[in-house]
């Protein structure tokens, strides 16, 4: 009888230890996936209306291009999004590139937002996505 109880305790302890070890070794990934130095702000309720969001910058063309990818969730949502480009020394690139653009995201449909910097020296980007009341 005592042996059975001890065995149960042993099993439970080893199970807990195994689970604990798994939890500590699991890598914690950042969400949304944004390249270092850049920023992606999802204003309420956009965070709950999107999933698998990521931000990358392509520099293969003559001007840097930011690509935001994701998938819609829950409900059809009209959005407005803007980009703010910054040079390597942290100065904001002024001009029309920081205007709000309009788009619509649909549940379970993948979408891509793309914007090109107006100057080649643009290094990092701050992207803001908010719900639109005008669509």
């Amino acid at each position: 009888m005592r042996n059975v109880s001890a065995f149960r305790w042993l099993m439970l302890t080893s199970l807990l230890l195994t689970l604990g070890a798994c939890a500590s070794t699991q890598t914690q990934s950042e969400y949304p996936a944004v390249e270092a130095g850049n920023r992606l702000d999802l204003e309420y309720p956009i965070e709950s209306r999107t999933k698998m969001m990521s931000l990358t910058i392509r520099r293969d063309a003559n001007l840097p291009t930011v690509i935001i990818s994701g998938e819609g969730a829950r409900a059809r949502t009209a959005i407005e999004w803007s980009t703010q480009w910054f040079t390597a020394d942290g100065r904001e690139v002024s001009g029309t590139s920081n205007r709000f653009r309009r788009a619509t995201i649909n549940p379970d449909v993948a979408f891509t937002l793309q914007a090109t910097a107006p100057v080649p020296v643009a290094e990092t980007v701050h992207v803001r996505i908010r719900q639109s009341d005008n669509m």
Binding site: T65, T96, S97, R99, R101, A115
Partner: peptide, 19 residues
């Protein structure tokens, strides 16, 4: 002004990225 900003912004972006 938002319409002009949008149209101008999209056009200049298209023009610059087209090369």
């Amino acid at each position: 002004y938002r319409d002009f900003q949008q149209a101008a912004g999209e056009m200049v972006e298209g023009m610059l990225s087209s090369g």
